[in-house]
């Protein structure tokens, strides 16, 4: 099984968080899986880790529609953070609004991080793909 040190899940839906965690259990071996209710909480945590020189997540599962700070607002700030490593950001959403796709294109081309766009529900095979890190 693939070994990953640190995965973050940013989603306000507890069922989704449960589901992602469960699927991760059967696809990868991960030491730390953290979850955040909204983008702001996740961002604050990452900023904190940077200043304290703590390890950063290698993979982030990111929901778009969240209270307080949504997925796009999170990304806007995240790509400006001084992170040298390549973080894999998997957007997981049930949205089919074309606006969200253009937003994805927008961010994809503005960062060295890898950003994928995935519609819910996530199948096991897909999970296998998006947990690969370069």
């Amino acid at each position: 099984m693939r070994k990953i040190n640190f995965i973050s899940i940013v989603d306000d839906d507890p069922i989704m968080v449960f589901g992602i965690k469960k699927m991760l259990n059967s696809t990868v071996e991960c030491k730390v899986v953290e979850s955040y209710n909204n983008g702001n909480l996740a961002l604050e945590n990452i900023k904190h880790s940077i200043t304290k020189n703590k390890p950063l997540p290698e993979i982030i599962f990111l929901d778009i529609n969240m209270p307080i700070m949504d997925g796009w607002q999170f990304l806007t700030e995240f790509i400006t953070l001084p992170i040298k490593t390549k973080v894999k950001v998997n957007i997981v959403t049930s949205s089919i609004d074309p606006y969200d796709l253009t937003q994805w294109e927008f961010f994809k081309n503005r960062t060295h991080h890898i950003i994928t766009f995935n519609n819910k529900p996530i199948k096991k095979q897909k999970m296998d793909d998006i947990t690969k890190i370069a």
Binding site: I15, T93, S94, S95, I96, D97, P121, I122
Partner: peptide, 17 residues
């Protein structure tokens, strides 16, 4: 979009569970 998004997210949850 909101309707579609909300219904889809629920159905996605159902199917996943």
């Amino acid at each position: 979009h909101i309707v579609s998004h909300n219904l889809r997210s629920h159905s996605a949850n159902f199917s996943m569970l």
